[in-house]
Protein backbone atom coordinates (compact mmCIF):
# COMPACT_ATOMS: atom_id res chain seq x y z
CA UNK A 1 0.00 0.00 0.00
CA UNK A 2 1.45 3.36 -1.10
CA UNK A 3 1.09 6.30 1.28
CA UNK A 4 0.62 9.93 0.21
CA UNK A 5 1.74 12.39 2.85
CA UNK A 6 -0.31 15.20 4.29
CA UNK A 7 2.16 17.73 2.79
CA UNK A 8 2.04 16.21 -0.69
CA UNK A 9 -1.74 16.45 -0.85
CA UNK A 10 -1.81 19.95 0.69
CA UNK A 11 0.79 21.30 -1.75
CA UNK A 12 -0.87 19.68 -4.77
CA UNK A 13 -4.28 21.16 -3.95
CA UNK A 14 -2.81 24.57 -3.22
CA UNK A 15 -0.95 24.62 -6.57
CA UNK A 16 -4.07 23.54 -8.45
CA UNK A 17 -6.13 26.31 -6.81
CA UNK A 18 -3.58 28.92 -7.91
CA UNK A 19 -3.26 27.59 -11.47
CA UNK A 20 -7.02 27.29 -11.92
CA UNK A 21 -7.74 30.84 -10.71
CA UNK A 22 -4.98 32.67 -12.59
CA UNK A 23 -4.15 30.65 -15.71
CA UNK A 24 -6.79 29.74 -18.25
CA UNK A 25 -6.10 26.19 -19.55
CA UNK A 26 -4.45 26.23 -23.00
CA UNK A 27 -7.35 24.48 -24.75
CA UNK A 28 -9.83 26.99 -23.30
CA UNK A 29 -7.70 29.93 -24.46
CA UNK A 30 -7.43 28.23 -27.86
CA UNK A 31 -11.21 27.79 -28.09
CA UNK A 32 -11.74 31.51 -27.37
CA UNK A 33 -9.06 32.39 -29.89
CA UNK A 34 -10.67 30.24 -32.61
CA UNK A 35 -14.04 31.87 -31.97
CA UNK A 36 -12.39 35.31 -32.10
CA UNK A 37 -11.01 34.50 -35.57
CA UNK A 38 -14.35 33.24 -36.92
CA UNK A 39 -16.66 35.86 -35.37
CA UNK A 40 -18.12 38.31 -37.87
CA UNK A 41 -20.03 40.77 -35.66
CA UNK A 42 -17.77 43.63 -34.53
CA UNK A 43 -19.07 43.84 -30.94
CA UNK A 44 -18.84 40.05 -30.51
CA UNK A 45 -15.32 40.04 -31.94
CA UNK A 46 -14.25 42.89 -29.65
CA UNK A 47 -15.78 41.05 -26.68
CA UNK A 48 -13.78 37.90 -27.44
CA UNK A 49 -10.68 40.05 -27.85
CA UNK A 50 -11.25 41.48 -24.35
CA UNK A 51 -11.69 37.96 -22.92
CA UNK A 52 -8.37 36.88 -24.47
CA UNK A 53 -6.66 39.97 -23.07
CA UNK A 54 -8.21 39.18 -19.70
CA UNK A 55 -6.49 35.77 -19.66
CA UNK A 56 -3.13 37.37 -20.46
CA UNK A 57 -3.49 40.07 -17.79
CA UNK A 58 -4.61 37.51 -15.19
CA UNK A 59 -1.55 35.34 -15.82
CA UNK A 60 1.06 38.08 -16.10
CA UNK A 61 -0.17 40.41 -13.33
CA UNK A 62 -1.47 37.68 -11.03
CA UNK A 63 -5.03 39.01 -10.87
CA UNK A 64 -7.79 36.36 -10.67
CA UNK A 65 -9.42 35.59 -14.03
CA UNK A 66 -12.79 36.40 -12.44
CA UNK A 67 -13.71 38.21 -9.22
CA UNK A 68 -16.06 35.28 -8.57
CA UNK A 69 -13.41 32.79 -7.51
CA UNK A 70 -16.21 30.29 -7.33
CA UNK A 71 -17.28 27.32 -5.34
CA UNK A 72 -14.33 24.97 -5.19
CA UNK A 73 -15.31 21.55 -6.50
CA UNK A 74 -12.75 18.77 -6.09
CA UNK A 75 -12.87 15.43 -7.85
CA UNK A 76 -10.76 12.70 -6.32
CA UNK A 77 -9.99 9.37 -7.91
CA UNK A 78 -8.46 7.31 -5.16
CA UNK A 79 -6.65 4.14 -6.17
CA UNK A 80 -7.36 1.02 -4.13
CA UNK A 81 -3.62 0.69 -3.55
CA UNK A 82 -3.11 4.11 -2.05
CA UNK A 83 -3.68 5.56 1.38
CA UNK A 84 -3.54 9.16 2.58
CA UNK A 85 -1.69 10.13 5.73
CA UNK A 86 -4.51 12.11 7.39
CA UNK A 87 -8.09 13.07 6.65
CA UNK A 88 -8.15 14.13 2.97
CA UNK A 89 -11.24 16.29 3.50
CA UNK A 90 -9.50 18.29 6.24
CA UNK A 91 -6.26 18.60 4.29
CA UNK A 92 -8.06 19.82 1.15
CA UNK A 93 -10.19 22.35 3.04
CA UNK A 94 -7.15 23.72 4.86
CA UNK A 95 -5.17 24.01 1.61
CA UNK A 96 -8.03 25.86 -0.08
CA UNK A 97 -8.64 28.24 2.85
CA UNK A 98 -4.93 29.08 3.15
CA UNK A 99 -4.46 29.57 -0.58
CA UNK A 100 -7.56 31.76 -1.01
CA UNK A 101 -6.23 34.01 1.76
CA UNK A 102 -2.61 34.18 0.61
CA UNK A 103 -3.48 34.82 -3.05
CA UNK A 104 -6.22 37.40 -2.44
CA UNK A 105 -8.93 35.21 -3.96
CA UNK A 106 -12.51 36.19 -3.14
CA UNK A 107 -14.26 34.07 -0.54
CA UNK A 108 -17.83 33.47 -1.74
CA UNK A 109 -19.23 30.72 0.48
CA UNK A 110 -21.86 31.46 3.12
CA UNK A 111 -22.43 29.28 6.19
CA UNK A 112 -26.07 28.42 5.66
CA UNK A 113 -28.22 28.86 2.53
CA UNK A 114 -31.29 30.11 4.40
CA UNK A 115 -30.83 31.15 8.00
CA UNK A 116 -27.26 32.41 8.23
CA UNK A 117 -25.81 33.77 5.02
CA UNK A 118 -22.58 34.87 6.69
CA UNK A 119 -19.48 34.55 4.54
CA UNK A 120 -17.20 31.86 5.99
CA UNK A 121 -14.29 34.04 4.84
CA UNK A 122 -12.25 31.05 3.65
CA UNK A 123 -14.19 29.91 0.57
CA UNK A 124 -14.69 26.60 2.35
CA UNK A 125 -16.22 24.12 2.68
CA UNK A 126 -15.03 22.62 -0.57
CA UNK A 127 -17.42 20.30 -2.41
CA UNK A 128 -15.63 16.97 -2.83
CA UNK A 129 -16.65 14.04 -5.04
CA UNK A 130 -14.76 10.79 -4.69
CA UNK A 131 -14.41 7.77 -6.95
CA UNK A 132 -12.55 4.62 -5.99
CA UNK A 133 -10.47 3.29 -8.90
CA UNK A 134 -7.85 0.60 -9.60
CA UNK A 135 -4.18 1.40 -9.05
CA UNK A 136 -1.90 3.07 -6.54
CA UNK A 137 -2.25 6.73 -7.48
CA UNK A 138 -4.48 9.65 -6.49
CA UNK A 139 -5.90 11.87 -9.26
CA UNK A 140 -7.07 15.32 -8.16
CA UNK A 141 -9.04 17.89 -10.13
CA UNK A 142 -9.82 21.34 -8.76
CA UNK A 143 -12.73 22.96 -10.59
CA UNK A 144 -13.76 26.57 -9.89
CA UNK A 145 -17.43 27.26 -10.59
CA UNK A 146 -18.92 30.76 -10.52
CA UNK A 147 -22.35 31.47 -9.04
CA UNK A 148 -23.81 33.29 -12.04
CA UNK A 149 -23.44 30.35 -14.39
CA UNK A 150 -24.31 27.81 -11.68
CA UNK A 151 -27.67 29.60 -11.28
CA UNK A 152 -28.50 28.68 -14.89
CA UNK A 153 -28.13 24.91 -14.24
CA UNK A 154 -31.06 22.77 -15.28
CA UNK A 155 -32.43 19.25 -14.84
CA UNK A 156 -35.33 17.66 -16.65
CA UNK A 157 -36.63 14.17 -16.09
CA UNK A 158 -37.78 13.04 -19.56
CA UNK A 159 -39.96 10.02 -20.09
CA UNK A 160 -37.94 7.10 -21.46
CA UNK A 161 -39.80 7.22 -24.77
CA UNK A 162 -38.90 10.88 -25.40
CA UNK A 163 -37.19 11.30 -28.74
CA UNK A 164 -33.80 12.90 -29.14
CA UNK A 165 -35.28 15.97 -30.85
CA UNK A 166 -37.21 16.83 -27.66
CA UNK A 167 -34.01 16.57 -25.65
CA UNK A 168 -32.11 18.78 -28.11
CA UNK A 169 -34.94 21.34 -28.07
CA UNK A 170 -34.83 21.46 -24.26
CA UNK A 171 -31.07 22.00 -24.22
CA UNK A 172 -31.12 24.72 -26.88
CA UNK A 173 -34.07 26.47 -25.19
CA UNK A 174 -32.23 26.43 -21.84
CA UNK A 175 -29.13 28.01 -23.39
CA UNK A 176 -31.25 30.62 -25.15
CA UNK A 177 -33.28 31.47 -22.05
CA UNK A 178 -30.12 31.79 -19.98
CA UNK A 179 -28.92 34.26 -22.63
CA UNK A 180 -26.28 36.65 -21.27
CA UNK A 181 -26.62 35.56 -17.62
CA UNK A 182 -24.09 32.69 -17.50
CA UNK A 183 -21.39 34.65 -19.46
CA UNK A 184 -21.28 32.87 -22.82
CA UNK A 185 -19.55 31.54 -24.90
CA UNK A 186 -20.40 28.53 -22.75
CA UNK A 187 -18.69 25.26 -22.14
CA UNK A 188 -21.75 23.06 -21.92
CA UNK A 189 -21.67 19.84 -19.88
CA UNK A 190 -24.58 17.42 -20.26
CA UNK A 191 -25.29 14.48 -17.98
CA UNK A 192 -27.71 11.93 -19.40
CA UNK A 193 -29.02 8.89 -17.54
CA UNK A 194 -28.32 7.61 -14.02
CA UNK A 195 -30.52 9.11 -11.31
CA UNK A 196 -31.25 12.83 -10.98
CA UNK A 197 -28.20 13.40 -8.77
CA UNK A 198 -25.89 11.27 -10.94
CA UNK A 199 -26.96 13.17 -14.07
CA UNK A 200 -26.15 16.52 -12.39
CA UNK A 201 -22.76 15.25 -11.25
CA UNK A 202 -22.02 13.85 -14.72
CA UNK A 203 -22.90 17.23 -16.24
CA UNK A 204 -20.17 18.71 -14.03
CA UNK A 205 -17.67 16.00 -14.99
CA UNK A 206 -18.59 16.23 -18.69
CA UNK A 207 -17.61 19.87 -19.02
CA UNK A 208 -14.04 19.01 -18.01
CA UNK A 209 -13.61 16.45 -20.79
CA UNK A 210 -11.17 17.89 -23.31
CA UNK A 211 -11.98 15.50 -26.12
CA UNK A 212 -15.32 14.87 -27.84
CA UNK A 213 -17.21 11.71 -26.88
CA UNK A 214 -15.47 8.48 -27.97
CA UNK A 215 -18.77 6.94 -29.11
CA UNK A 216 -19.83 8.11 -32.57
CA UNK A 217 -23.54 8.54 -31.82
CA UNK A 218 -22.85 10.69 -28.77
CA UNK A 219 -20.17 12.60 -30.66
CA UNK A 220 -22.65 13.41 -33.43
CA UNK A 221 -25.20 14.49 -30.81
CA UNK A 222 -22.60 16.83 -29.25
CA UNK A 223 -22.01 18.36 -32.68
CA UNK A 224 -25.72 18.82 -33.42
CA UNK A 225 -26.33 20.49 -30.05
CA UNK A 226 -23.33 22.78 -30.62
CA UNK A 227 -24.58 23.83 -34.05
CA UNK A 228 -28.13 24.41 -32.82
CA UNK A 229 -26.95 26.47 -29.81
CA UNK A 230 -24.86 28.62 -32.11
CA UNK A 231 -27.88 29.59 -34.19
CA UNK A 232 -29.62 31.16 -31.17
CA UNK A 233 -27.87 34.50 -31.76
CA UNK A 234 -27.04 34.94 -28.06
CA UNK A 235 -23.33 35.40 -28.82
CA UNK A 236 -20.40 36.31 -26.58
CA UNK A 237 -21.72 37.76 -23.28
CA UNK A 238 -25.16 37.88 -24.89
CA UNK A 239 -24.25 40.86 -27.10
CA UNK A 240 -25.26 38.90 -30.22
CA UNK A 241 -23.16 36.78 -32.59
CA UNK A 242 -22.51 33.24 -33.76
CA UNK A 243 -20.46 32.03 -30.82
CA UNK A 244 -22.81 31.14 -27.97
CA UNK A 245 -21.33 27.76 -27.07
CA UNK A 246 -17.67 26.79 -27.35
CA UNK A 247 -17.90 23.06 -26.70
CA UNK A 248 -20.56 20.49 -25.84
CA UNK A 249 -19.61 17.41 -23.86
CA UNK A 250 -21.90 14.57 -22.83
CA UNK A 251 -21.42 12.03 -20.06
CA UNK A 252 -23.98 9.25 -20.01
CA UNK A 253 -24.84 6.58 -17.44
CA UNK A 254 -27.10 3.50 -17.28
CA UNK A 255 -30.53 4.39 -15.97
CA UNK A 256 -33.84 2.99 -14.68
CA UNK A 257 -36.45 1.61 -17.13
CA UNK A 258 -38.81 4.44 -16.15
CA UNK A 259 -36.34 7.34 -16.33
CA UNK A 260 -34.34 9.52 -18.66
CA UNK A 261 -32.73 12.37 -16.71
CA UNK A 262 -30.99 15.15 -18.64
CA UNK A 263 -28.88 17.60 -16.62
CA UNK A 264 -27.16 20.74 -17.85
CA UNK A 265 -24.08 22.43 -16.47
CA UNK A 266 -23.63 25.78 -18.17
CA UNK A 267 -20.04 26.87 -17.61
CA UNK A 268 -19.06 30.43 -18.44
CA UNK A 269 -16.29 31.24 -20.94
CA UNK A 270 -13.84 31.20 -18.03
CA UNK A 271 -13.57 27.40 -17.63
CA UNK A 272 -11.21 27.19 -14.69
CA UNK A 273 -9.82 23.84 -13.60
CA UNK A 274 -6.56 21.97 -13.16
CA UNK A 275 -5.68 18.34 -12.57
CA UNK A 276 -2.74 16.39 -11.28
CA UNK A 277 -1.88 12.81 -10.38
CA UNK A 278 0.03 11.89 -7.24
Amino acid sequence: MRTISHEELYTAVSNLVVQANFNLPDHVYQALSTMHSSEKKPLAKETLHILLQNATIAATKHIPLCQDCGSVIVFLQIGTGVTIDGNPEEIINTAVADTYRSHYLRPSIVKDPLFDRTNTGTNTPVFIHTDIVEGDSLAITVYIKGGGSENMSSLRMFTPTADIEQIIDYIVATVKQAGPNPCPPLFLGIGIGGTADVAMLNAKKAVLQKEPHPNEEYRRLEEVILQRCNTTGVGPLGFGGNNTVATVRIKEAPTHIATLPVALNLNCHSLRYRSTIL
Binding site: Q53, A55, I57, I63, G148, C183, G238
Partner: peptide, 12 residues
Protein backbone atom coordinates in the same frame (compact mmCIF):
# COMPACT_ATOMS: atom_id res chain seq x y z
CA UNK B 1 -23.46 45.57 -19.20
CA UNK B 2 -19.79 45.41 -18.50
CA UNK B 3 -17.69 42.46 -19.61
CA UNK B 4 -18.61 39.44 -17.50
CA UNK B 5 -15.61 37.35 -16.57
CA UNK B 6 -13.13 39.98 -17.81
CA UNK B 7 -12.36 40.86 -14.21
CA UNK B 8 -8.57 41.13 -14.49
CA UNK B 9 -8.96 43.32 -17.59
CA UNK B 10 -11.42 45.60 -15.77
CA UNK B 11 -9.06 45.84 -12.78
CA UNK B 12 -6.76 47.82 -15.05
Amino acid sequence: SSFGGAAAYLNQ
